[in-house]
């Protein structure tokens, strides 16, 4: 750096439009200032995480200090009814169960469909087909989640209800099986549609990153296109695909507007997709929209729920990162 040319060096004049020629030391100081500012910007993301953790931890501790709340009940209790009933129960499992039901429905739709579409796009489709399919997926990815919620409520649920006369033959009088106006199935399917583009485009990236030589080798050994894509390319891209799945699942777990609109508001433990369920996010919406006083136990409970949600998605992301690092196949 010491030997940097000064402004009098004629051939280097072309670069000087980047800034007036300055003495080396002035320039060094400017550089340091700029890099320092950029470093401060980079630290901001750390600040965000720390603040999230501190805020959630502080309010959650505040929640557990209430006399009618206990840590044991929160993690083992099977009843969640902070807003109704004489006796309040704060057991998180009904909310987790609701979240899991919606997520399982979403994943069992989006993961297979997304993965097969990704294989098709990466291994089978001609460039022309790709050029029409990719924009469609990008549009799906850009649609706001509240629109999917509206779609679940006004299109998917009425369609599902067409199956009710058939379903009712299975239920008994006191436990009927029929899709109500709010149900886990519609919310789950809409969430599945929402995460489909994520699964598809990230899996496709992973598949396309597999080097051509592997495919050529497999074809040369007499493999069909199915053999090549499913038995050679797919295993080679597995770490990326698993990471894509985990990211999509954590999106489904954290999804708010769809479940707030279409899944209903009854916190219950059930595996019945026709039932109304409340997810963790939907409970938080209910609290922040309601008129629960900001110092009350109901209000504080939403922070404990948020902390649980944060920990769950954090673990999913960490597993995803670990899979990517640990099981990545390097071909270079």
């Amino acid at each position: 750096m010491k030997s940097l040319p000064t402004s009098s060096d004629a051939p280097l004049r072309d670069l000087t439009h980047l800034g007036r020629p300055k003495s080396v030391s002035a320039r060094t100081w400017r550089e340091r200032l700029i890099v320092g500012t950029l470093a401060v910007a980079a630290t901001f993301s750390i600040l965000v995480t720390t603040t999230i953790v501190i805020v959630l931890a502080r309010e959650t501790i505040g929640f557990f200090e209430f006399p009618d709340v206990s840590l044991v009940e929160f993690f083992t209790g099977l009843e969640w009814n902070p807003l109704l009933g004489a006796e309040k129960h704060f057991g998180i499992w009904p909310l987790i169960s609701g979240t899991l039901l919606v997520t399982v429905i979403a994943a069992s739709f989006a993961l297979p469909v997304g993965l097969i579409s990704a294989i098709y796009l990466s291994e089978y489709a001609s460039p022309r087909v790709r050029a029409t399919l990719k924009p469609a997926l990008e549009i799906l990815a850009g649609i706001p989640t509240v629109v999917y919620g509206f779609f679940a409520l006004t299109v998917i649920t009425p369609l599902l209800q067409k199956a009710n006369p058939f379903l009712e033959t299975f239920g008994s009088a006191d436990a009927p099986i029929a899709f109500g106006n709010y149900n886990a199935m519609a919310a789950g399917l809409a969430t599945g549609i929402m995460i489909l583009p994520i699964v598809c485009s990230l899996s496709e990236d992973a598949l396309r990153a597999v080097p051509r030589s592997l495919r050529d080798g497999a074809f040369a050994l007499g493999g069909t296109r199915f053999d090549v894509s499913v038995k050679v390319v797919l295993p080679a891209a597995l770490s990326g695909i698993v990471a894509a799945f985990l990211l999509a699942v954590s999106r489904a777990v954290g999804e708010t507007m769809i479940v707030a609109l279409a899944a209903g508001g009854i916190a219950q433990i059930t595996a019945n997709p026709t039932a109304e369920v409340q997810t963790m996010t939907a409970y938080m919406v209910q609290i922040f929209l309601g008129d629960a006083p900001a110092t009350g136990v109901e209000y504080k409970s939403s922070y404990a729920v948020a902390a649980t949600l944060f920990v769950m998605t954090f673990i999913l992301t960490m597993i995803g990162q670990w899979v990517l690092r640990r099981f990545r196949e390097e071909y270079d």
Binding site: L56, T281, T317
Partner: peptide, 29 residues
């Protein structure tokens, strides 16, 4: 600019994690 130190590794991992945080949690923040 950043050299590959433990600090930049943490920042990088942290950004991936932030991308996975549900948006409603940002609302609380």
């Amino acid at each position: 600019f950043a050299k590959r130190t433990w600090f930049t590794k943490i920042v990088q991992t942290n950004i991936m994690n932030l991308a996975g945080v549900p948006s409603i949690v940002y609302g609380i923040l």
